[in-house]
Each structure stands twice: as structure tokens, then as C-alpha cells.
Simulated scan of single mutants.
Amino acid sequence: MGRWNAPRRSLLLVHPDGAGSKATNEDLNLFFALSPDYAGIAKAAAGGNLWARQASTAKQLDELLPEAIESVKNGIGAVLDAHLGGPQGKYPGERNVNVG
């Protein structure tokens, strides 16, 4: 889970004992539950001309890596965003990218 701590550090430098110092990152909206969809962003930036997928388990990675390699061999770039967070993975369900 991502955290952006620069605003918290700035707050603490100015008001180290203020109310904000006791607030959680969630209270301050400095918390992001999911990582960005890097594969989707890359595919959109490529105008859809990119093989882009996400793998959340080792099994998915094993299945998708040969596809990524084949895409590159065929002259189409590939982005395989792997977030392996145990048997269930980081992303619930299927999150393959199908842009454009």
C-alpha cells in the first residue's frame, strides 16, 4: 500500500505537536489503497499499441511472461506489471488490461 509522506513531514516540521501530528495518513488523505495501473497507463500512452498485463500471482506471471516475450519478438512492446502478494495476489480477481 502506497504512502506519500512529504506532506506529513512538512506538517510535522511546522506543527510537531499539533492535531495533525496525531492524525493517521488515512485521516490526512495521504494513503492510497491500490497501486496505479501502470500497465494500463503505459498502454494508453502508447496509443493502445502495446501488450500490457498485470500478474498478481506466480501462476499468472508464469502464464503471462511467455506472452510478453512473444509480443516483443513480434515487434510490439510489452509491459508486465507483477505484484506478487501471496497466493491471492495484490489485486482481487482478473485485472488484465484491455485498452483501445
Rank of each mutant, 00 (worst) to 15 (best):
A45C: 06
L84P: 03
A46K: 13
L84T: 09
A82S: 13
W51Q: 00
A33S: 14
Q60M: 11
G100Y: 05
G18A: 03
V97A: 06
P92V: 05
S56L: 04
R53A: 15
A33H: 11
G93C: 05
A42I: 00
H83W: 14
L64Y: 15
A45V: 04
S21Q: 03
N98K: 15
G75Q: 07
A45R: 12
G47W: 09
D17R: 15
N29T: 09
R8L: 15
F32W: 11
F32Y: 12
E26W: 00
P7M: 06
L64C: 06
G2Q: 14
K90W: 09
D17C: 00
M1I: 05
P7V: 02
D27M: 13
A42E: 06
A68W: 13
D81R: 05
L65R: 05
E26V: 12
D62C: 01
S21F: 04
N5M: 07
L11C: 00
D62W: 06
A68D: 09
L64T: 04
Y38E: 06
G47D: 12
E67H: 13
G93P: 00
L84K: 12
N49H: 15
T24E: 04
G48V: 09
I69Q: 11
H15W: 03
V14Q: 08
R9E: 11
L11F: 05
D81G: 00
R8Y: 01
L12K: 04
L34E: 15
E67N: 05
R9V: 05
A46C: 14
A55R: 04
P87M: 02
L84Y: 07
L13W: 03
N29K: 13
S56W: 00
N74I: 01
P36N: 10
R3V: 13
M1S: 09
N49M: 05
L50C: 07
A68R: 13
W51D: 01
N25G: 02
W4H: 12
G85L: 08
A52T: 10
V79M: 14
A82P: 00
L64V: 02
L80N: 03
R95E: 05
L65E: 06
H83Q: 15
P36C: 07
D27T: 07
H83K: 14
L65G: 00
N29L: 13
Y91H: 14
K22D: 07
